[in-house]
């Protein structure tokens, strides 16, 4: 008997699937994405490239919360003491949660996004945008979920972490343009997590200066995720649970 990373992943997988909230949030995500896609296909006259995946913006918030709660649920319930007693190195727990989140969300979102695209075509005709956007639409939420996990580790408190996530992800980018002098805000906005995520599944032909290309967008979002996860890891190691 000994603790190995693979075993910690297996343990986290067991814990993840055993929570009712996991299944409820995943069901909401599926219904919201596919439902919005169908509604938009029916009603939009000249749909933009991101139209089939507008639901992804919504579910990114939900999945971010899934990531947050994976960590803050441990602290809030006191379970973290049992978890860290079993895995005193602690970092493997955060790593395993990241693996579980990716392994659960990536294939799930791939199915949901493909289903959305299919529904869009059935209801509204040909799909705008390119095939890359389909990939971007299911990879972006995974990265935002990981960002949530990092925030959860960093902040440790569910309500506070969700507040920060919503403000930082959704509200702050909208304020940047107005708050900063000249066009500085406009130039920065595209590097914020939500704008970088949208760059992965939106055709930037409509807004070539306001949005990054998918490649740089992916890199920008990746940098955010790594930075927040590293900050979260430092807190996990340093602070007494």
């Amino acid at each position: 008997m000994k603790v190995t990373f693979a075993r910690v992943v297996r343990s986290e997988w067991t814990k993840f699937l055993a929570l009712r909230s996991t299944w409820i949030l995943f069901a909401l995500v599926a219904v919201a994405t596919v439902g919005l896609s169908a509604a938009i296909a029916r009603n939009a006259s000249a749909p933009s490239s991101s139209a089939p995946f507008l639901g992804v913006d919504v579910v990114s918030v939900l999945l971010g919360i899934v990531g947050i709660v994976m960590m803050t649920g441990e602290y809030g319930s006191g379970l973290v003491r049992a978890t860290f007693a079993a895995v005193p190195a602690r970092l493997p727990v955060l790593g395993a949660k990241a693996v579980v989140l990716t392994v659960a969300v990536l294939p799930f979102m791939a199915v949901v996004v493909l289903l959305s695209a299919w529904v869009f075509r059935v209801v509204g005709g040909p799909l705008p945008g390119s095939g890359d956007h389909i990939v971007g639409a299911f990879v972006a939420p995974v990265l935002l979920a990981l960002l949530g996990l990092g925030l959860g580790a960093l902040i440790r408190h569910t309500a506070a972490a969700i507040t920060v996530y919503v403000l930082a992800i959704l509200v702050a980018p909208a304020l940047l343009g107005a708050a900063l002098p000249d066009d500085l805000g406009e130039r920065l906005v595209k590097y914020t997590p939500v704008a970088a995520a949208q760059a992965l599944y939106t055709d930037r032909a409509t807004d070539p200066t306001g949005m990054l290309a998918p490649g740089p967008g992916g890199v920008a979002l990746g940098v955010w995720v790594v930075a927040v996860l590293v900050a979260g890891a430092v807190v996990v190691l340093r602070r007494d649970p």
């Binding site: 343990s11 649920g73 006191g78």
Partner: peptide, 26 residues
């Protein structure tokens, strides 16, 4: 160790709580 404050997630059953711990060690 049994620590003073509860160390259990309210949303999981006793069995999955223990399974989660047992599986870290195989």
């Amino acid at each position: 160790a049994l620590l003073e404050a509860r160390s259990i997630h309210r949303g999981r059953s006793a069995r999955t709580h223990l399974l989660g711990l047992a599986r870290t060690h195989g």
